[in-house]
């Protein structure tokens, strides 16, 4: 193999986007910057899914996270704080303790997955779209969790409406 292959370059680019975005979420001083970095991180992760031949998951990631969760988060920021005082309330507490815990967890997990003996895959499957296989699995083997998921989403829908509605005075 000559030097850097395209795969390596693309991987490190996407991983870099994801990690830089995550760093922005963790360290940005402005909550709106945090939300936008979150979007960057989600985009990087969606690219990694494409590299892993998971087209459907990448599409869902784009639709649900980038299109939904980030927008929802931004709306929550706008609704709960005036644009002006957003900065004040993104303070962090206990950075030293947090850093210590995170470094410990990182070291533990890093060591454990470096030491683990993964089964070598029998053969690398050729890159092909996995959307059909995911669809068959969702409506075949995983049909019960799939239906329960729709129930959960219905409950979430109703719950979110109930939680956020305005309390109106009882009128007899």
């Amino acid at each position: 193999m000559e030097g850097l292959s395209a795969e390596v370059v693309v991987f490190f680019f996407l991983a870099g986007v994801a990690v830089v975005g995550a760093c922005g979420v963790a360290f940005a001083t402005h909550i709106v910057y945090s939300a936008l970095s979150l979007m960057l991180s989600f985009l990087g992760v969606a690219g990694l899914y494409v590299m892993l031949d998971a087209d459907f998951v990448a599409g869902v990631q784009l639709l649900v996270y980038v299109g939904g969760v980030v927008v929802l988060t931004l709306f929550a920021v706008m609704l709960t704080q005036g644009i002006r005082d957003v900065k004040v309330s993104n303070r962090s507490a206990g950075r030293g303790f947090g850093l210590l815990t995170v470094v410990a967890v990182f070291a533990l997990l890093w060591r454990s997955f470096q030491a683990a003996q993964w089964h070598r895959p029998v053969e690398y499957l050729a890159a092909e779209s996995s959307t059909a296989a995911v669809g068959n699995a969702l409506l075949g083997r995983y049909v019960l969790p799939f239906e329960v998921a729709s129930l959960v989403l219905l409950a979430v829908l109703v719950g979110a409406v109930v939680l956020t509605r305005k309390e109106t005075a009882e009128s007899e």
Binding site: V45, A93, G94
Partner: peptide, 23 residues
């Protein structure tokens, strides 16, 4: 792992409830 650790850091240190959710 890196994403997990940064998220954990965010959850542990953020005081803003929305920041915690992002973590």
């Amino acid at each position: 792992l890196i994403l997990f650790c940064l998220g954990l850091f965010c959850v542990l240190t953020r005081r803003n409830a929305i920041g915690v959710l992002m973590g």
